[in-house]
Amino acid sequence: MHKEEQTITEVGVDNLVSEVSKMYDEGYRLVQIGCGKYDDIFEINYSFDKDCKFVNLRLKITEGVVVPSITGVYLCAFIYENEIHDLFGVSIKDIAIDFKGNLIRTSVKNPFNTPTVTKVKAAKPAKSENAAAAGAKPDVKSDAKPDTKPDAEKKKEEA
């Protein structure tokens, strides 16, 4: 059975770009950037290869964290970063060629960023859906609030 050795090193948002630069200086090629959403954690894998040696950097973030772009180091990352932005809704700062959500124009916005459905217990799905819905609602509210508040304030001012 052929199984490659694959190392995974965790990095943070702060040292991502410096770690990626190190890989670049050592002559690694950027293979891919892939994202996955597990529960509420976004896991972004940066894969590198040099002479068929396969190495990964892994960044774990929660919703709302802004990830720095690595296009300053590897320009080709723009295609993966735009894809992650379009599919997962992860915001990535300073992409060299930023399509602003128009690379893969899907009919559903951020299709991969759906609440994870856990199939562990049979009784709970309804609840977890409710929780998910509840989880989605505050976002709507928080979006709506800034609009309503100024209105209310305006009314006060007018009064």
């Binding site: 891919q32 080709c76 723009f78 199939k119």
Partner: peptide, 20 residues
Amino acid sequence: GSKNILRERVRTPSSANIPP
């Protein structure tokens, strides 16, 4: 460990060749 895998990510050669 469930019968549905969590995530499948495919990076195809054509998408890697778009920047070049």
